[in-house]
Structure formats: structure tokens, C-alpha cells
Design a protein around this nucleic acid. Structure first.
Lengths: 123, 123
DNA sequence: TTCATATTCAACCATATGGTTGACCTTGCT
DNA sequence: AGCAAGGTCAACCATATGGTTGAATATGAA
């Protein structure tokens, strides 16, 4: 039987990508940003516009989203464009699908995810 | 057009349930606990057993999972039983579905795959 | 060159998070 | 009654998180 508890434990060296994805999604500002990017790619300043917080704060949120792989950022001229990167979301959704709450299922993504997660277990 | 940024903003009075669900899922210990509960309902002490941390710490994790609605706890005698409560997960999955990241795939194959993965390997 | 725009950096602050330990209640066993 | 087992509580600690402000770094425009 798979020892799921130990399988999901972290060593100091590695950080499970799911940690970052779910942590990124846990903030309502960041979820709102993702929803905005669903409609269109946007520059950092435009992303920040509807929020009642500083541009620097939004810039940090975008970095967190980027490190989680949820968005990609590309600098063109002095403008940095942000676009949705759904692959990271897919990994998270696949983890959830393990609990049988979904109708649609992506087996390929699940296999990739499982391979990754099993690969970097603690010795 | 719906103002998604403002729509997702929080007032002090309300806390979006998705905040709690995703925050709960962001911790690898808690994800491992959920995976364990997928196999069977468990008492708090038994949940704690495979982890290298105190019972009190696990007790806190379980409270967080319960407050997020991801598990239910029922006390019978002096034992508190924990069981998976997939509805909260479903809410999170619905949010994710909004991003259209789900490729429809063969559910039977997925279940066979999951069964194989869980079938072998002793701790 | 000079100025404005777009974005990040650095330092700082308050609060949240994840863990510890030891004391504390309940409940069951004998 | 008396003791052990199952869990939680409270106080505490270190670090992470989410925000601020002001200075710094490109890049584009005049």
C-alpha cells in the first residue's frame, strides 16, 4: 500500500509545486487577477488598476503567481505583459480529481503529476 | 461586463470559503491527511501516527481542514473520528473549471490507474 | 538630453502560520 | 476509585505573508 503520508512529506531541499499553486490560489486578490487574465492578457499597471492597493503589492502578487506557474510574464518594451498559464492549474485539478469529486478527468496530467511527486520523495 | 476584480474582493465581514479551502490544501501535511482519509475514516491519533510532529500539531491541522469543510469530525466515546467531506473540494473544483483546463478523459482508465498505484508498496 | 512612464527593489511593519511543550479535560478500563 | 488513553488548550517561538513607502532601474517620447 502506498504510504501517502510519507509520500507527501517535504525535505528542506524540495518544495512541492502543489504547495505553491494552492498557496497562490488561497489569496482572493490573486484569484481575481487570474480571472481578469482569463479575459485578456494585461500589463502590470492595468492589472493593478481595479485594486485598492499599491502597484508594488500587485507586482508581488504577480511574482507569486508566476513562480507557481499560474501565469507567464513577458517584457515588451517597458511594458510587462501577463498571461494565464493554465498548466499549473491543471496539476492542481488533477490532484483534486484523485478524490473523485470531478466528472472530467485528465489521465495524462495525473500520470505526469504522480511521477513528479513520487520522484522527489525523501530518502 | 462583470468586474471580476471587484467581485472577488473581500469585505472584512466575509471570508471567501475558497480562501480557506485553498489555504488548507496549500500544506503538504494536510494534503497527505486528506489522502489518508480517502482510504478510510480515522481517529486523530491514528492520523498523527505516520507524521514526525506532535499530536497537537496534527490536531490543529485537522481543525483547519474541518473549518474549511474538507473533513467532518465526530466524537464517539473518547475517540474523535475524521472523515473526508468532498463537497468543499467540489466548490474549489468548480472555481477551477472556470478556467477550462480540464481535458475530458477516460474515467475508467483513470480509476484503474489509481487503483494500481494504491494497490502495491508497503510503508 | 531630459522627462515621464512602467516596474521592481529594499526596508520596514503587523499579523498569520506552523510548530513546540506542558497542563488540562473526558472517557474507558480494572 | 484510580489510572491510562485520546484530544484539546494555552502560551510561546520562529518564520512567512501581505501590505506600505520611497528610491532605483529601464525604456520610450519630446
Amino acid at each position: 500500500m502506498v504510504d501517502l503520508a510519507h509520500a507527501a512529506l517535504n525535505t528542506p531541499a524540495m518544495t512541492n509545486p502543489l504547495d505553491q499553486v494552492f498557496a497562490a490560489l488561497a489569496d482572493p486578490t490573486r484569484r481575481a487577477i487570474l480571472a481578469m487574465l482569463l479575459e485578456d492578457d494585461m500589463a502590470v499597471t492595468d492589472v493593478a488598476e481595479p485594486f485598492a492597493m499599491s502597484l508594488a503589492a500587485i507586482s508581488k502578487h504577480l511574482q507569486i503567481l508566476a513562480e507557481a506557474g499560474l501565469i507567464a510574464q513577458e517584457k515588451r518594451g517597458r511594458v510587462k505583459w501577463c498571461k494565464l498559464e493554465p498548466d499549473a492549474l491543471r496539476a492542481a485539478s488533477v490532484w483534486m480529481q484523485g478524490f473523485g469529486v470531478f466528472d472530467p478527468v485528465d489521465l495524462d496530467a495525473f500520470e505526469r503529476f504522480l511521477a513528479d511527486e513520487l520522484a522527489d520523495q525523501a530518502p
